[in-house]
Design a binder for these strands. Structure first.
Lengths: 353, 353
DNA sequence: CTGAAAGCGCTAACAA
DNA sequence: TTGTTAGCGCTTTCAG
């Protein structure tokens, strides 16, 4: 334009748009934010100016005044040292590679995107990092938090629950907490597995459990045992494993050593069921003719496995979508009391049982 | 909204800290940001005040003035859109469930966290969303972008490359682009497969390739053929497939029809290798005794498969860490020219070959 | 219905 | 070395 001005250059601001449209910044702001009281004609002019300048609102400036970032955090927290993790796979690798994580993210997105919210990923592996994290969250970096924490000693659920920050947990907290959460009916799912094995005619059934310091693992174990007892099987051997394929294999070896006549196994997740399949094959057992195997989760490996896995399905995507919706609700109405939603699992029958 | 006034729980600001410490905001700011020229004694006073007030800097305010958000985006882009649906495996589910994704994220974090950067996840499934995305990124929501895009027709790599936004691609762009990227030596990986099959004594080898409009698929095919030629096998039959299990199965059927004496197959990814295994089983072939199979990726199905898959492994975590480092470098020095780093793959020998 | 003006909380010249 | 003072770009009363 004028020669005394350098170069209009870079990113257009609300001010530029206002000048082009011949209105005030306030009016442009109103149009952009869809505030009603604006002359339709002016709206058109402003819209054209926005188009022409290629204006996009500055996120930081907007967040500074509205105190909203339109983004939430997915915090993945894990205890310092897992009870019997002898594997060399670092925690980050394990958790992010777990199919559950992918399904969770996918489900969250399905509900977050329509609301124009974005997702920031955060890890909390150590106490040090956990401390930083809390500060980070309180900076107003995000409007709310989805917390994935399964370790019972993890202090993060309690710490975050005490914050005013909107929060949703991906499972029932291991200690009583006034926090919103979504979970699956764990013991009901395990009972489904028990029913199925009994219905198949299994006489000698055992189970590979998850780490028993985790609520979900405990619930699945007790749910399975309770239902088996009701079917007339008062004693169900179990070996504790670590939700990984390798520990599942090892656990099954031990089960097999204790009882060679085993004809049914319930593994508390699919990865461990995969390990069970492996061990059974090594012992020349046919599946499901000699030993029937039921997993839990219905992760993608359940289908890829050979034989494909009969498994208890958690509707993870739907659960995650619900978490996102609940979080959004909390963000929208700060005073909202904590609540919870429990989803029913279903049995997916495939080849392994 | 009640009539009484329950302490607004006011978040402390720099101003509060300054008052408590009896200094100016500027000084507090300097201490917090580690700017040198501050009296050590005053530093102590300020630090105490920060502690006492529980102050954490406001992210939006800081970003507004520094023009830095200290966060980067991981953009996952795919050509076609599939609606979210629990029964089908939608794109989101597929990609997030793919172990590659988890390994990528883990690797990114390992380099991002020391730099105090956070990661925002973004999906680009449709053109509509892609358009919004570009605006979103330009809002200054993030300082840079890691772009995961494998479809050659995807316009996003070009669009983002034309933006001034610091950008790193997770693979070599299918069209020439002045963009920084990290990739694995595709043809070298295929050559590894060739060496292994030859070393096993395979005499009649064929390959199932990926879609040849994708650079990676082309590179793997030519890399395989070149190395086989060097081993004295000038002609290697190939059938093009689509990186899925089913197309891998079909392609193997055709290969088998053309040459029943086949004794080695290189599939350009693990899913197709799984399809090959399936087809071979149906034809009564034993693996690896009758036909050896080598895949590519070392994805989770490689382990879950029976027999487990011998496959070419990409050092994804290391690659991702490098991507993050390169992105940070670009953020730090805006004028930095595009560059690329190529990693060497390794062969993971399991049961199938 | 529109504009003027006051900040949001912070950093970064520029003075002192 | 420290304080003063402008803003960063936006939303939002409050007048007009």
């Amino acid at each position: 334009m004028s020669s005394d001005r350098p170069e209009p250059a870079a990113i257009p601001t609300l001010e530029h748009v206002a000048v082009v449209a011949g209105v005030s910044r306030a009016t442009v702001s109103r149009v952009i934010n869809g505030v009603r009281n604006v002359d339709p004609q002016l709206q058109e002019v402003v819209r054209a100016a926005v188009e022409q300048t290629g204006y996009v609102p500055n996120h930081a400036a907007r967040a500074l005044v509205t105190r909203r970032t339109n983004s939430v955090a997915l915090v993945v927290s894990e205890g310092e040292h897992r009870a019997f993790d002898a594997s060399d796979t670092p925690f980050v690798g394990r958790i992010f590679t777990d199919p559950y994580f992918g399904r969770l993210v996918a489900g969250l997105f399905s509900a977050l995107r329509p609301a124009a919210y974005s997702l920031t990923l955060m890890l909390a592996e150590t106490d040090e990092i956990r401390r930083q994290l809390v500060g980070y969250l309180r900076q107003g970096h995000v409007d709310g938090v989805i917390l994935m924490s399964s370790h019972p000693q993890d202090p993060l659920p309690r710490i975050l629950a005490e914050t005013a920050l909107p929060l949703v947990l991906t499972e029932r907290p291991s200690i009583p907490l006034r926090a919103t959460y979504v979970d699956v009916a764990q013991s009901a799912g395990a009972a489904l597995a028990a029913d199925h094995l009994v219905a198949r005619g299994c006489k000698s059934v055992a189970t590979v459990s998850g780490p028993l310091d985790m609520g979900a693992a405990r619930d699945r174990l007790s749910g399975f045992r309770d239902r088996m007892a009701r079917h007339g099987h008062p004693y169900i051997p179990s070996v504790e494993a670590n939700f990984t394929r390798e520990t599942g294999r090892l656990a099954t070896e031990r089960l097999l050593a204790q009882n060679p006549a085993l004809d049914g196994i319930f593994a508390a997740n699919d990865l461990m069921a995969l390990g069970a399949v492996l061990a059974l094959h090594e012992h020349g057992k046919r599946i499901p003719q000699d030993v029937a195997v039921v997993g839990f989760d219905d992760s993608n490996v359940a289908l890829a496995s050979r034989p494909s896995l009969t498994t208890v399905r958690q509707p993870v995507e739907e659960m995650a979508a619900e978490m996102a919706r609940m979080l959004l609700a909390h963000i929208g109405q700060p005073g909202r009391p904590a609540s919870s939603v429990i989803f029913e699992p279903t049995l997916v029958v495939r080849e392994s049982a």
